[in-house]
């Protein structure tokens, strides 16, 4: 039985639409045009308990709208979903106590007070027993390394500090299902890495089910084996990250360092030449040909070092957002 089960979920918004300028503004006073925006169309997927799924797509793809429906913020236009056997948009208090949604910089923190005050209110609202609250707080404070900023007024915190406190407050009630919408947005690389590690540890320790959206591929690669690619409200791909890579980028990159310049050697006959310097070469070759090409290079050239790599996931995902994925999936 999946922990998150979504069937044909659809959300359509009606948004006002008009041309720019005063004339159009006057006209809209009498006749207001509305346009239907299909934010999410017929989306179906399921997530098992303890799974971390990456939800990927460009801006406006429908990722956040889907998460908002699953967290009970939005009612769908049609379709159904259950999370832990409950219908999210019924907003039962028992359901809301078992989930958490972290929305980038949308704060659960009291802006004018130290973070500890927000933690205290959170513990009361979620009715966390005092000893459990203290134990969880100590654990989160240590893992997120926020001991030194707990007494700092939230509005004076740096973005990274605030994000860590935001994560802390979201997890105080030990949610079984986590919806993370851009959890590393706006923070530096070191902090991104720490937050990633922390999410992974939380998942392992508490068996939490996590759906994560992120524009940082490093988040996805580090945390998610499975990804769902969504664009224009429709699911384009649902499967293992490796499978997407194989489907969309059926080639490998061979990088070689040479002892000396090999002059007019015809690398183009072996594959696409990505880099050609006097002693450094990068070739893109079909996956199936990679071992043969590597063997040929090693036998014919004074190779100092050779590596065979998958193409960067950024390129794969970028490709996924284009039309090629549909073809790839259809194929």
């Amino acid at each position: 039985m999946p922990q998150i089960d979504v069937h044909n979920l659809t959300k359509t918004f009606k948004v006002p639409e008009r041309e720019g300028g005063v004339g159009a503004a006057m006209k809209s006073l009498f006749r207001r045009k509305q346009k239907e925006v299909h934010a999410v169309s017929d989306v179906s997927f399921s997530v098992a308990q303890g799974e971390i799924v990456g939800f990927l797509g460009p801006n406006g793809a429908g990722k956040t709208t889907t998460l908002k429906m699953l967290s009970g913020l939005l009612h769908p236009t049609s379709g159904s979903a259950t999370v832990m056997d409950q219908v999210p948009w019924k907003r039962d208090a028992t359901y809301l106590r078992r989930i958490s949604m972290l929305m980038g910089q949308r704060s659960q923190l009291q802006w004018d007070l130290p973070a500890t005050d927000s933690f205290y209110v959170h513990s009361a609202i979620y009715d966390i027993p005092k000893d459990q609250y203290q134990q969880t707080l100590d654990e989160l404070v240590a893992l997120l390394d926020i001991g030194g900023i707990l007494k700092k007024q939230v509005r004076t915190m740096s973005l990274g500090e605030r994000m860590k406190c935001e994560i802390c407050v979201s997890l105080l009630h030990r949610p079984s299902v986590l919806f993370l919408d851009e959890p590393t947005i706006g923070v530096d690389i070191t902090m991104q890495s720490r937050i990633r590690q922390f999410i992974g540890e939380y998942n392992r320790k508490h068996g939490a089910t996590i759906i994560l959206t992120s524009h940082y591929m490093a988040d996805v690669v580090a945390l998610c084996k499975r990804i769902i690619v969504i664009d224009h409200g429709r699911i384009l791909f649902d499967g293992q990250l490796d499978a997407l890579s194989e489907k969309l980028a059926p080639f490998k990159v061979i990088k070689i360092d040479l002892d000396r310049d090999v002059g007019a050697y015809d690398f183009a006959a072996l594959g696409d030449v990505l880099v050609r310097e006097s002693r450094k070469v990068e070739l893109r070759v079909p996956r199936a040909n990679a071992p043969g090409v590597a063997e040929q290079l090693l036998s014919q050239l004074p190779v100092q070092d050779l590596t065979i790599e998958d193409p960067p996931i950024e390129h794969v995902i970028e490709k996924a957002f284009g039309t090629k994925l549909e073809k790839a999936v259809d194929a």
């Binding site: 908002k68 809301l96 106590r97 958490s100 929305m103 659960q108 609202i125």
Partner: peptide, 8 residues
């Protein structure tokens, strides 16, 4: 939205 996520 942040307020609606709470069970109160």
């Amino acid at each position: 939205s942040a307020m609606l996520l709470r069970p109160i």
